[in-house]
């Protein structure tokens, strides 16, 4: 179990929780749901953004996510599974390659097939493509440099479970921190993901930090319940971060906004 250490963070979390519960009661009335949306965060050796992700999910949904270790083969009954960023298995072989073969990934695949939402951020995105849950591959940045800075993202598809808090074409700020975020897909795959609306985020003009084809920053699967993205929305969710542009992704996925 993780706890939020700073008292001010606790206050903020409870404020967020109130807002969330107000929205949730609206949502429950609207959908007849009788519960809060639940989430889980996957933990693997070498992942280091799990605490940021837990804090973001807790603050936005008002409910702490369940944590799931890599060896688990049965997952709790949740609405959203998040694979956070980091350097699982030291990025050995290829980024995300070894993590993608761990037992928990079979369980995540099964949940994804049942329609449970899955979000992979940064290394989580690399793990999802290595596991075959998302198309394409993530290669070494074209500059060969690790990039750690803020970029601007264009919301290409706002009609998804992860982006309905945004407007199509909206430009949002987001931090990035990676060495291997250069999205690659063969011509046929690229054409099909572009045509199907699977490209959810693009680096806004002039901010592509890694050489990704088509400036692609985030893609989803054909059913629209699995999203992978290199940028870190969990690091821009409140005033203390200098902005809250990333909040909408979690608010959308956890349905803490009116759809």
């Amino acid at each position: 179990m993780h706890s939020i250490s700073a008292p001010s963070a606790l206050n903020r979390a409870s404020a967020a929780s109130e807002t969330a519960s107000n929205c949730m009661s609206f949502k429950r009335r609207r959908q007849g749901l009788n519960r809060t949306m639940k989430s889980a965060v996957v933990q693997l050796p070498g992942l280091n953004r799990d605490r940021d992700m837990i804090a973001a999910l807790t603050k936005i949904s008002g409910k702490a996510p369940v944590t799931v270790w890599q060896t688990e083969t049965e997952l709790p009954d949740v609405d959203l599974i998040v694979i956070p960023g980091g350097f699982s298995y030291g990025d050995y072989l290829r980024c995300g390659a070894i993590a993608a073969r761990m037992p928990v990934m079979q369980a995540i695949k099964a949940k994804a097939e049942q329609g449970v939402k899955v979000l992979g951020v940064c290394n989580g995105f690399q793990i999802l493509v290595e596991a075959g849950l998302l198309p394409g591959a993530l290669m070494r940045n074209a500059s060969l440099k690790f990039v750690c800075r803020e970029v601007k993202l264009e919301v290409v598809n706002a009609d998804t479970d992860f982006t309905r808090a945004y407007a199509k074409g909206q430009i949002i700020r987001s931090p990035v921190a990676h060495h291997d975020g250069n999205y690659f897909a063969d011509a046929e795959t690229l054409k099909s993901i572009e045509g199907n609306g699977q490209v959810v985020f693009r680096y806004a003009e002039g901010t592509n930090p890694n050489g990704s084809m088509g400036d692609i920053a985030g893609v989803m699967n054909t059913s629209g319940n699995v999203l992978g993205m290199m940028p870190h929305p969990e690091n821009l969710i409140e005033a203390a971060h200098g902005g809250s542009d990333g909040r909408g992704i979690f608010a959308s996925a956890l349905e803490v906004i009116a759809a």
Binding site: A97, V129, A137, D186
Partner: peptide, 9 residues
């Protein structure tokens, strides 16, 4: 096929 190569690339 399963691990050593990523056959996408």
């Amino acid at each position: 096929e399963k691990l050593l190569a990523n056959t996408v690339i």
